[in-house]
Design a protein around this nucleic acid. Structure first.
Lengths: 343, 343
DNA sequence: CAGAACAATTGGATCGATACAATTGTGCGA
DNA sequence: TCGCACAATTGTATCGATCCAATTGTTCTG
């Protein structure tokens, strides 16, 4: 925990008051743009402020007013471009509201998540946007956060509780993707990648199963392939799709990273993705548009989701008595060349 | 600017004191793990703390102690995976030091950068890590930040001033890359991508020119091609490499995004990257290892750089009288299949 | 058993800005 | 010129935790 320099005292509102012969209260009024101060005094004070290079101490004000001007954003993995975009959106909207973002990352560790949450509470975040680490216990989080700090859970299920939820329409997304492949004439469609026990993976798999069931197709067990949700792991597992004949002709992937890995693995085995085998991803990360071939995927617009999350938590902080909301953000199909009609 | 709920008063240290019949001072001592308190009292106090669900108010403590427990991180573009990794590293190291990260992004806007800096100062950041927006004025930033808050400038030049600098060894990086290509037997080597006026691009181009000069090769003007530093733009500009004969046989790229775009553009024109034309990137983003073919590049390890930046600013906050440091982080060549000996 | 040495506890001022009641200054009509 | 309404300004308690000097308990030694 760092300490601040003590070399030269910091300028306070009292210094300004003394410097131009008014009371601290008046300076405070000037800072708040109160119409009560005469414009001549205001100018005198403002001149003194710039002359002395005074910096407002928001922490002191927050203490007095029992308010907070920060919102915490806790994600599991910043280096995932999806969350990075989300974070950028959150920060954008918070900054626009004159609010600062407290960043925390958990690296999927429940223990670190506990520590980070505690730290954010101590730092008096007005609200918390949380994308829970895998294996989080909703009860425990609720107990830790308490009823005073509003919480918005993003991206993953955490059971029901006294918090707002902003979820993606995972199930509908993969259903759309699967229906798209069915419409192209595919019948043997795999669901590729993701961790069996993650809630988002479960939901996406369910959407796939819905669409298959609606088409009266029973997926073979070997069409469901689990991998770590990374490009590299996905590329390694491509072989599993072709162990038994007849092999699938298309795959709905857990996310774009996996889909890109799959395309890579296909190319490495001499199958041309988009022609010999059709791939659909999920997320629409920037790379999806420029991969080889460009990837058909489900877009969820993480930046807009970030802005949305920020606005929601600000609304709740503004009025804690609002009813709990549960928003399902839309997912839309973006068709690119990785999926094209069977010839 | 949000306000906090007023529904039920927050528990303060005084409540705990009353609750177990000691003075606030004693509770404070317990919180600071002071050895002065008798262990029986300590236990009584701790029990009361958990019973009432007390949350420490670090802002109040910071005010009294004239300290701060936060460090600001200001980047131009979080959605750039390079900065996202960097941010993850910063947060990791700050969290380990019990410090919280104030995030701000500027989107390359000098005006937003001014606003964000001002906000961070008001929020009493103990120090600021800044990757300046393009076109920043070092003077202006110095004036704004003042002498009280230590500043660490990352990634871009900003003139010399009262701040620490953590830079990448751009020039040496591209020199290494170019020497690698020369060693493979290439002579007609292009420098591809980047904005002419960005400081990092200039440095990287200089490294390339150094190596070429050392090999007594004068680059043709059409070997130097400017593009926006994105995959898409790079892919669009590939044609420019081949307008005149004899065309280059290899390219050192401004960064990996550009290099991947170049590979894409080559494939689209029927040239096999890595065989018909050799490509080297810069940054070693995760995609580089799994592109087609895997990309030879210059690794700078952004996560480690982030940790390093955090540690440096913490050290400076701890002792403001340290001499100014200027660290050039090493860049190392990672050879993959996108570069292989001419056959 | 006095009193020194030490352990444990506490009152109250303080950090910097704000809110509120109270005070002072100004203009104007009677 | 007085008094009144209203505009400006100000003194001071406060937010929650900390720190210092001062106080109270406890133990031990001669």
């Amino acid at each position: 925990m760092p300490r601040r320099s003590t070399s030269r005292r910091k300028i306070t509102l009292r210094d300004i008051a003394q410097g131009c012969g008014v009371s601290p209260a008046t300076v405070s009024l000037v800072l708040q743009r109160s119409p009560l101060v005469r414009s001549s005094t205001r100018q005198r004070v403002e001149a003194e402020i710039t002359r002395q290079g005074y910096v407002y101490n928001r922490a002191a004000a927050n203490l007095r007013q029992r308010t907070s001007s920060s919102v915490a954003l806790i994600v599991n993995d910043l280096s995932n471009p999806y969350f990075a975009e989300f974070a950028a959106g959150v920060d954008e909207a918070l900054a626009a509201a004159g609010c600062v973002t407290l960043l925390g990352s958990t690296g999927e560790s429940v223990e670190r998540q506990r520590a980070v949450l505690a730290s954010m509470l101590e730092h008096a975040a007005a609200g918390i946007i949380l994308s829970p680490a895998e294996g989080s216990d909703g009860e425990a989080i609720a107990r830790l956060v308490g009823a005073h700090t509003p919480l918005l859970v993003f991206n993953r299920e955490l059971g029901a509780g006294e918090w707002d939820v902003l979820a993606l329409d995972n199930r509908r997304g993969t259903r759309l993707a699967t229906e798209h492949l069915l419409a192209l004439g595919h019948r043997r469609i795999a669901f590729f990648g993701g961790h069996r026990d993650s809630s988002s993976c479960r939901e996406r798999r369910d959407g796939y199963l819905d669409a298959m069931a609606a088409a009266a197709i029973v997926p073979e067990p070997q069409w469901l392939i689990e991998t770590a949700p990374t490009r590299l792991e996905a590329a390694r597992q491509v072989g599993a799709l072709f162990v038994r004949d007849p092999a699938p002709t298309a795959a709905v992937c857990y996310n774009d990273a996996v889909a890109l890995g799959l395309q890579l693995g296909l190319a490495a085995r001499g199958r041309r993705p988009g022609q010999d085998f059709v791939v659909v991803g999920f997320d629409d990360i920037p790379e999806a548009a420029v991969s080889l071939p460009p990837l058909t995927t489900i877009a969820t617009d993480p930046r807009a989701r970030g802005r949305q999350a920020a606005e929601r938590i600000l609304a709740r902080v503004g009025d804690p008595d609002l009813a709990i909301t549960r928003t399902i953000a839309p997912a839309r199909l973006v068709v690119r060349e990785s999926s094209c009609p069977l010839l």
